[in-house]
Amino acid sequence: MTDSNYDEIMQLLCDRLSSLTNTNAQISPETNLISQLSIDSIKLLNLIMEVEDTFDISIPINALADVQTVRELVDLVHKIKSAS
């Protein structure tokens, strides 16, 4: 996968997170999903289903245990998409 793909995933996730959390705050790669966006577990799981459908991949939700920031979420999606 090229960097443009990585950027595409980053843009998509930032847009969706902004919409899900109804925040006007700037979402950056280092934004913490829990402490800064207060995204609850169900919203995050539903977002993962959307991302799976967008990129036609399977993202095991147990992999989210290591995800705290937007960048870590993008890295996870990028890694799975690259391997698919």
Partner: peptide, 20 residues
Amino acid sequence: ADIIRFKHNDVTDMEKRLRR
């Protein structure tokens, strides 16, 4: 195990995830 969710009671969504 790897955990994949499908939309509640949605068998079309379930099949999509099985196929993947």
